[in-house]
């Protein structure tokens, strides 16, 4: 029995015709697995490599370049909450905002709340500087995040 479901495998395979080389489907495959399983385990890497006809170390090598993917026994929570620390957000209070989120959630950056609902992270500029200080919830921008707005957001994400 493999780790990846047949459905997940076929969604990975659907990317292959797009590229002249199977290796190019590495990032799409990692995203699909990571989104669904909230981590990319060694077993998953082996199975991705099999589909892409690569050595597992090639998938692992590419993946670890992007600090984006959780691996090695670490898991993402249900939601990712990124607080932007880029210059435009810093100038409009994002360091204070990050501090606020840390203490409200009781976790440091990179960690997940005990209920498994929110993984708190910092981000470099997320391209939403017109709404600084800005956050990213999974892959959606939240603009103009005051402490009150952050509280409401965190409550919502913990539901």
């Amino acid at each position: 029995m493999g780790l990846l479901s047949e459905d997940l495998k076929s969604r990975i395979k659907a990317y292959l015709p797009r590229y002249p080389r199977k290796q190019a489907a590495t990032l799409p495959a990692l995203h699909l697995v990571h989104d669904e399983m909230r981590t990319v385990s060694n077993e998953a890497i082996v199975e991705i490599a099999e589909i892409l006809e690569l050595h597992p170390s090639e998938v692992h090598d590419a993946m670890t370049f992007y600090e984006f993917f959780k691996t090695g026994g670490e898991n993402l929570g249900k939601n990712r909450l990124w607080v932007c620390r880029g210059l435009a957000c810093f100038l409009r209070g994002s360091y204070e905002l990050l501090d606020h989120c840390k203490s409200k959630l009781g976790v440091e950056c990179g960690y997940t709340t005990a209920d498994g609902k929110i993984t708190l992270e910092f981000a470099e500029c997320i391209g939403a500087c017109d709404g600084a200080p800005a956050c990213l919830v999974n892959d959606v921008h939240v603009m103009g995040v005051t402490p009150e707005k952050a509280d409401a957001l965190m409550t919502e994400l913990r539901k």
Partner: peptide, 23 residues
């Protein structure tokens, strides 16, 4: 083709390497 949170993927040859499935 979606990236994974790295500024260097905007440099044109970094972008190409990333597209090809590498660092």
């Amino acid at each position: 083709h979606r990236g994974a949170g790295a500024y260097i993927c905007g440099e044109e040859t970094g972008l190409i390497e990333s597209l090809e499935g590498k660092r």
